[in-house]
């Protein structure tokens, strides 16, 4: 609870900075929306209607007042309230990011453990290759590469046109995650369609997240395996299964969880590009489109949403750490 309160100043700073940024960025909203043929009067009219002709402090004050009512403003591109747009699109981004993270964890943690337990083995070398590749390949590149190979060359995956193919309809809204909602509705056709669509972008994000997780898992496992209590466990003749999984891995996971939080926030950033490449209707692509249109309210809403997500994320990491580490519970 105190941590939550402690993050309030950061949120205030984010509100101020995004407000200033959207005002100083090049591009004039009024000109953009008036269209190329508009006269100077109509541009001035639009500017007045949007309140863009008033002094900055006044604009900021009315922005904060609206914010306090939960009003993030209107998107000029979609004509909808920004809050509604973001609420509609957030589940798509969240599903993609979480799925990507799951893929990364599913591969990186076992790989890191194997690499640490059998140093110099094939798994160790593979781990090194993956880590190097993961940090050196940008996500938009891996994304395009995957589309090129699996859609264009092999034809294994469907066209990158969003969350579902043209013939499927969205499952009834429960969590907003299509894979979960479709499974709950026992609509396996939609489920397959959603899975086929999400697999490539999720793998793109997964490849990006793989490297830091594998590296930290390996390093943390190595450190724990050299610890004195592992020597005790060996001296007690515990099976290597118990030693590695119960004694070493559980201790090694503590720094890994902290890293996961960091990786997750990187992923939220990487999402913007991946959603663009895969036409994914998430908040990342929404923000990019708004930015290109010099549409300030959605950009501010996006950044604020991200900031809130970071705060919640850190809180979650904290809770998980407390659950894993009895020492954290007592301090």
């Amino acid at each position: 609870m105190w941590r939550l309160a402690g993050s309030l100043p950061a949120l205030v700073a984010v509100i101020i900075v995004t407000f200033v940024l959207t005002r100083v960025l090049p591009g004039d909203t009024a000109t953009y929306f008036a269209g190329p043929t508009a006269s100077a009067e109509s541009i001035a009219q639009i500017r007045a209607a949007l309140g863009l002709d008033r002094p900055l402090p006044e604009q900021f004050w009315s922005y904060v007042q609206a914010l306090a009512r939960g009003d993030l403003g209107m998107s000029l591109t979609t004509g909808q309230p920004v809050l509604v747009d973001i609420m509609n699109r957030l589940p798509a981004s969240a599903e993609l990011t979480l799925f990507g993270l799951l893929i990364a964890m599913g591969i990186a943690i076992p790989l890191g453990v194997l690499a640490a337990v059998k140093q110099g083995s094939l798994a160790d070398h593979l781990c090194r290759v993956v880590v190097t590749a993961g940090v050196s390949l940008p996500v938009f590149f891996t994304g395009l590469l995957l589309v090129y190979v699996f859609y264009y060359l092999l034809g294994w995956s469907p066209a990158p046109v969003g969350r579902l193919d043209a013939f499927a309809s969205a499952p009834p809204f429960i969590t907003g995650f299509y894979l979960v909602d479709a499974a709950l509705a026992r609509d396996w056709e939609t489920w397959h369609s959603a899975l086929a669509q999400i697999i490539l972008p999720a793998c793109t994000l997964g490849l990006f997240a793989l490297a830091p997780i594998a590296r930290i898992t390996r390093a943390s496992m190595l450190a724990v395996l050299g610890a004195e209590f592992i020597r005790t466990a060996r001296a007690s003749g515990l099976s290597s299964r118990t030693i590695i999984l119960t004694y070493a891995l559980r201790n090694a996971l503590l720094p890994v969880v902290t890293t996961l939080g960091m990786v997750f926030s990187f992923l939220l950033g990487a999402n913007v590009l991946v959603e663009k490449v895969f036409a994914w209707p998430g908040i990342g692509s929404y923000a990019v489109e708004a930015l290109i249109a010099s549409d300030g309210a959605p950009v501010q809403g996006f950044v604020l949403t991200m900031a809130i997500l970071y705060v919640l994320l850190n809180l979650t990491i904290d809770l998980v750490n407390r659950a894993l580490d009895p020492r954290a519970r007592h301090s």
């Binding site: 020597r231 466990a233 060996r234 580490d325």
Partner: peptide, 23 residues
């Protein structure tokens, strides 16, 4: 591994570090 801990056991210095901290 079957003899260790069963027929021959060992205790160490610095007992706090020699025990699993989160078990």
């Amino acid at each position: 591994a079957r003899i260790r801990g069963k027929r021959a056991a060992m205790i160490f210095q610095n007992p706090r570090a020699a025990l699993n901290p989160i078990r």
